[in-house]
């Protein structure tokens, strides 16, 4: 079978033996990381659901004897459930992009498939874009937290 490829210009940047090896290794490790990431996502979601159920049952037990404690347990359960599931969903997408990068890159390098190579780089691009936006949001929240802490600390002193 003729490999699905578009021959490039000889003077273009090529996938030579060296870059082939480096990209293959990078793809292998990226695939491993993504699989571990998928497992962590699943564990995080399961943890959130179990914690939600546990807090819910605690809340039901204390609803009659100690209503404020029951309400607090209910709220805590909902908080853990929402944050854990949201975290798992948020963590799932970069793992998916990384997995696609790894598997498509391996296929591209094995079969000399130009389309798979381009798609794999597209997925790595999506991975870094997602991670970059998330990092910027995280850093902005970090700065806001520092500013708020400084404001509250100065109010506490004076």
């Amino acid at each position: 079978m003729e490999p699905n490829s578009t021959p490039g210009n000889l003077f273009d940047l090529q996938i030579d033996a060296q870059s082939n090896g480096h990209l293959f290794q990078a793809a292998k490790w990226a695939k491993f990381l993504s699989v571990v990431g998928f497992i962590c996502c699943g564990l995080l979601a399961v943890y959130g659901i179990f914690a939600g159920i546990l807090f819910g049952s605690i809340s039901r037990n204390y609803n009659d004897s100690n209503p404020p404690f029951g309400a607090a347990a209910n709220l805590g359960g909902a908080f853990v459930l929402v944050f854990a599931v949201a975290g798992a969903v948020l963590y799932f997408f970069p793992c998916l992009y990384l997995f696609r990068f790894g598997s498509k890159m391996q296929t591209a390098l094995r079969n000399n498939d130009q389309n798979h190579l381009t798609n794999s780089f597209g997925n790595l691009k999506s991975f870094y874009k997602f991670l970059g936006i998330l990092t910027i949001i995280g850093l902005a929240l970090f700065f806001l937290e520092i500013i708020f802490v400084m404001i509250f600390a100065s109010r506490a002193v004076y």
């Binding site: 021959p7 591209a108 000399n112 970059g132 990092t135």
Partner: peptide
């Protein structure tokens, strides 16, 4: 064989340029 068959074509190069940009942002933020 692969030396002459797959390359960083225009699309792959565009993707790589965006990868470089966002990866640099990630590294600097880190």
């Amino acid at each position: 064989d692969s030396f002459f068959k797959i390359s960083f074509d225009a699309d792959a190069r565009e993707h790589l340029k965006t990868i470089v940009l966002w990866a640099r942002i990630c590294a600097i933020c880190a």
